[in-house]
Simulated assay, not measured.
Amino acid sequence: MKVAAELIALQERLGYRFADPRLLRRALTHASMSGPGRDDNQRLEFLGDRVLGLVMAEALLAGDPGATEGQLAPRYNALVRKETCADVARQVDLGAALKLGRSEQMSGGRRKMALLGDATEAVIAAVYLDGGFAEAKALILRLWGARIANVDEDSKDAKTALQEWAQARGLPPPAYRETGRSGPDHAPVFTIEAQLSNGESAASSAKSKRQAEQAAARALLDRLD
C-alpha cells in the first residue's frame, strides 16, 4: 500500500510505524472530510481518550505511591485535558497532516485546540488498534515526556487559575457566557467567552460547555501573561 509522504513523515515524528496506515489516515480525518468510504476520527477519539486516561492513571500511581486521590486527580486532569493533547499535537506538527474540509481549512482548523486535541486522541487509538496497548502506552509516555514528572507545576485547571488571578487583583470572579453554538444536534460545538470585570476577554469553542469554558479561561490567561 502506497503511503503519502506526509504520513511517513508524521510516523517518524511520532516514533511509530503503522502496519496498517489506513488507521492513521482515519485518525487524521476530521468530520468535515468524512463521506462514503471515508470514515472520520470521532470513534477513534472516543477510544483514544480512554487509553490515554488509563496510561496516565498508571503513570501517576507509579510515580508517586504515597499520593492521595485528592492529589492525583488534578494532576490527572492536567495531563489528559484537551489543551495538553493539543500541545502534544503541536509538538509533532500533527496539524499539518489533518484531513479537513474546505470550511475548516479556511477557518484555521489546523491550529484549533479542539481539532488538534481530538486528533491526538484518535492517533493514540489508531496505535492501540494497530500495535496493541504496549505500543500505545509507549507512544503516550514518549510524547508526554517531562509533562508527567512536572505535572505539579501546572495541575491547576484554567478556570481556577483565572479566578485566583482575578481575586489577587481585587476583581470579582470571571463571567462565562455562551456566544455561539454550531454543528448538528447530536454533536454540538459550543463557543464560550470568558470575561473579567476590567474588560479583558477571550473566547474558545469545544464539544462541551465545560471544555469550552476551560479553553476560554486558558486563552484569557495566556493573553494576560
Rank of each mutant, 00 (worst) to 15 (best):
Ala219Pro: 04
Ala216Ser: 07
Val3Ile: 15
Gly108Phe: 10
Ser205Ile: 07
Ala122Asp: 09
Ala59Trp: 00
Asp49Ser: 14
Leu7Asp: 10
Ala202Met: 03
Arg22Asp: 04
Tyr128Arg: 06
Ile148Trp: 00
Leu7Gln: 11
Gln195Cys: 10
Asn41Asp: 11
Ile140Trp: 04
Val92Lys: 02
Phe133Asn: 08
Ser201Lys: 14
Arg218Glu: 13
Asp157Glu: 09
Leu143Arg: 02
Lys159Val: 06
Ala161Val: 00
Gly117Thr: 03
Leu44Tyr: 08
Lys112Trp: 08
Arg181Phe: 00
Val55Lys: 02
Thr160Ser: 06
Pro36Phe: 10
Met1Val: 15
Ala27Phe: 09
Arg223Leu: 13
Arg90Gly: 12
Ala5Trp: 15
Arg13Trp: 03
Leu7Gly: 07
Ala19Asp: 13
Leu54Glu: 15
Lys209Ala: 02
Ala219Cys: 11
Leu100Lys: 00
Gly183His: 03
Phe190Trp: 12
Leu115Lys: 04
Glu121Thr: 07
Ala194Glu: 01
Thr84Ile: 01
Arg13Val: 00
Arg43Lys: 14
Ser208His: 05
Leu10His: 05
Leu54Gln: 14
Gly108Cys: 10
Pro184His: 07
Leu10Ala: 04
Arg147Gly: 10
Asn77Ile: 04
Arg50Ser: 04
Ala86Ile: 06
Ala216Val: 00
Leu10Gln: 04
Leu116Lys: 00
Ala9Thr: 14
Asn198Met: 10
Gly37Tyr: 08
Ala219Glu: 11
Gly70Lys: 04
Thr191Trp: 03
Asp152Glu: 06
Val127Phe: 07
Leu60Val: 04
Gly183Met: 08
Ile192Arg: 04
Gln211Thr: 14
Gln214Trp: 09
Gly70Cys: 01
Thr120Met: 06
Ala187Tyr: 09
Ala168Phe: 05
Ala202Glu: 01
Ala215Val: 05
Ala166Pro: 03
Asp152Gly: 05
Leu23Gly: 07
Ala9Val: 14
Arg218Ser: 11
Ser204Phe: 09
Arg17Ala: 14
Ser204Arg: 11
Gly108Ser: 06
Ile8His: 15
Glu213Phe: 02
Pro174Arg: 07
Asn41Arg: 10
Pro74Gly: 00
Leu115Glu: 05
His30Phe: 00
Leu79Trp: 03
Leu24Asp: 06
Asp225Ser: 15
Ala187Ile: 03
Pro65Gln: 07
Asp39Tyr: 08
Glu200Lys: 11
Leu143Phe: 03
Pro173Asp: 13
Ala166His: 06
Leu143Cys: 01
Met56Gly: 03
Asn150Tyr: 05
Gly199Gln: 13
Thr160Asn: 01
Arg43Ala: 15
Glu12Cys: 12
Ala67Tyr: 03
Leu139Pro: 01
Leu139Gly: 00
Gln211Cys: 14
Leu61Cys: 12
Ala161Cys: 04
Lys156Leu: 08
Glu121Asn: 12
Arg38Val: 13
Gly101Gln: 12
Ala125Phe: 08
Ala146Asn: 10
Ala122Met: 11
